[in-house]
Design a protein around this nucleic acid. Structure first.
Lengths: 224, 224
DNA sequence: CGCATAGTTCGTTCCTCATCGAAGCGTTCT
DNA sequence: AGAACGCTTCGATGAGGAACGAACTATGCG
């Protein structure tokens, strides 16, 4: 009977299996069409459309119309963070969904979290960048260190271009339980990693798989 | 149709208004009896009992039987963190539940988060302790600094006694969006604050209200 | 224009699940 | 022992909402 933000409303949106599958799929960071999400969730198109309407109304999704397609995406990093938090609880209390399987192992090593990298590899990268003083952890925030501009410029990432969102943000990793790098810089690093073909996205999964030479290049760039 | 931890299962537990109210009440940190939670949620005792059973089965709650009472509490900090995350989203996307009201203002200044202090006051405290090098932020974790033992001993808090849980932990504040101090030390500080009567708990709320002299004492102890 | 594709809206069906009263079990108090 | 209390279990009721097919709107292609 008390009040505050309407947490039940938000949680019940995530609490439907079809909607949860959609949100999970959108955690991959790329916006998807209604049909793709229907397939992902295992429901018919009308049903999916209804769900998407509810998620929109709840403020969890944004949509961009392009021609006859409508691309749905997560409303923002805060929503992604909430889903990671729920995932963390589900992973730790759940009856451990049968065997972990190889794909699950790959997910722990590296995966996409909304628009940036997560997993052991991502956590290690942030640690290393902080240790090298390229980034500076200050209180909760992460800031650019003195050598950041030149360091990233050498790899072909411009840390100044994108104004609106914070450049660096910490994002808690549900598998490692430590922070990894989010923000525009985190997003740029993921872009770079995929553009250089250091790693590829596993089809229909958030897992990110590094090729052996790609791994070396990535480590040379960020972990050396 | 993909898999991973069963997030819908967890979210749907939080998604019922009665259960959400119960969880919210338990965010106050004190374990409550089934009757108290029934009152809190505005449902009958049998209904509440049914909800509590589900929350138990889902691993979100723990219970301790004492005589004819059964005290229910949150299963752990991870669950509390998840609820804060959901609260954050609900607060930012929600239709802003009418006017903020004085109680809501008090909540932003200081409130109980599971077993420690949250809100502006708590965030400021952590910042100050880190600035004074009493605590050290290292990567995501917070560790005790060299002067921590003597500093807290002077206030009457022993930082060594409690072995199991980590002494320090960072916990993300939904109102300020910055970290505050959790862990056994965070809990000890809350205990101290209430024991010294620097502040009192608002009845039926998570809000914590400092008395003017209490505020001074608190600031002398942690913010000076 | 007419046809195909992408999405939404509508109406109906069906099932889950929240709710409560009544009854049952265990604990405490006198 | 008996009575009062705290809580859970059972059974019946009812409402909300998830699902789909069919019809409708909008965009793109020839």
């Amino acid at each position: 009977m008390r009040e505050g933000p309407d947490i039940a409303r938000i949680a019940s949106l995530v609490g439907d299996p079809a909607r949860a599958n959609m949100l999970n799929a959108l955690m991959g960071g790329t916006a998807l069409t209604a049909s793709e999400l229907a397939l992902e969730a295992g429901v018919s198109l009308p049903t999916a459309s209804s769900h998407l309407g509810k998620l929109m109304e709840g403020g969890l999704l944004t949509v961009a119309s392009q021609g006859r397609h409508r691309y749905y995406g997560l409303a923002g990093p805060q929503v992604a963070g909430m889903i990671e938090a729920i995932t963390g609880v589900a992973a730790s209390v759940g009856p451990q969904r049968v065997r972990p399987g190889p794909r699950d192992g790959a997910m722990r090593v590296a995966r996409v979290c909304y628009d940036h990298l997560a997993g052991e590899q991502a956590v290690a990268m942030l640690d290393r960048l902080v240790a090298k003083n390229v980034l500076v952890r200050d209180e909760q925030e992460i800031r650019l260190g003195p050598s950041a501009a030149s360091h990233f410029a050498a790899i072909g990432i411009d840390v100044y271009t994108k104004p609106r969102r914070p450049v660096c943000r910490a994002c808690l990793d549900w598998s490692v339980r430590r922070s990894h790098l989010a923000g525009t810089l985190g997003a740029a690093i993921l872009d770079k990693t995929l553009a250089e073909k250091w790693a590829r996205r596993e089809k229909d999964s958030r897992a990110v798989i590094f090729s052996p030479p790609g791994r070396q290049a990535f480590e040379r760039a960020f972990l050396s």
